[in-house]
């Protein structure tokens, strides 16, 4: 340990306290009591200050997790009559693109939606994002179904689940007709759950 003193500190077990000749330099408490008192004091103050310091660090690291996503926009897809005619033959693919703030930068995100006929007639717009693991399901005209190219999820022309790993059918998006146009609001849904849940 040290050059000028004997090796005693290195070999004395800590639990036994300091060597006896140090006792007079110490306060009124017995050395071992004093040592464990300071040990507990240093430990508990460290814990309190450490916990206080951890709060800003955790808040800082969790910022993107706790920050809510921006509001969804409506996108015009085209005249409902034209789309209905086209969708009667086979589902129409459309792309919506929107600005997404990605931390310190803003990017343009493109997402695929499918305009198709509803199970009860009329038009429905499906999110192309597979509810399994998020690949984009593609219409296969020859087979009359949507097929996800990643894990072979199969969906009918109204989006209903036909087979494969996905827990539910393709997700329908909110639509409205305004100014003679069909509008869709793009949404993200939680994946891998049987019940639809909008997450942004």
């Amino acid at each position: 340990m040290t050059s000028n003193t004997a090796d005693t500190p290195g070999t004395t077990p800590a639990a036994a306290g300091p060597p006896a000749h140090h006792a007079e330099a110490v306060g009124p408490l017995a050395p071992s009591t004093r040592r464990s008192f300071f040990g507990v004091l240093v430990g508990s103050i460290s814990a309190v200050v450490g916990a206080l310091m951890a709060v800003p660090l955790v808040r800082f690291a969790l910022d993107p997790v706790l920050r809510g996503g921006g509001g969804a926009d409506w996108f015009a897809l085209g005249s409902p009559e034209d789309l209905a005619k086209a969708a009667a033959a086979e589902p129409v693919r459309a792309e919506v693109s929107f600005r997404r703030v990605d931390g310190w930068r803003a990017t343009t995100v493109k997402q695929t939606v499918w305009v198709t006929t509803g199970a009860k007639g009329g038009l429905t717009v499906l999110s192309g994002t597979c509810p399994h693991l998020g690949c984009v399901a593609i219409w296969h005209g020859d087979r009359g179904r949507f097929v996800c190219p990643c894990h072979n999820g199969n969906f009918g022309r109204h989006g209903e689940l036909l087979g494969g790993p996905p827990p539910r059918g393709l997700d329908p998006l909110p639509v409205k007709v305004e100014d003679g146009k069909l509008w869709v609001k793009y949404q993200y849904f939680r994946q891998l759950v049987p019940d639809r849940e909008v997450i942004g």
């Binding site: 003193t5 500190p9 000749h21 007079e24 330099a25 300071f38 004091l41």
Partner: peptide, 15 residues
């Protein structure tokens, strides 16, 4: 000089 061990007195001051 009488020596004092690093812990507790000096540790406490440093802390």
């Amino acid at each position: 000089l009488p020596a004092e061990t690093f812990f507790p007195a000096q540790v406490w001051k440093d802390f």
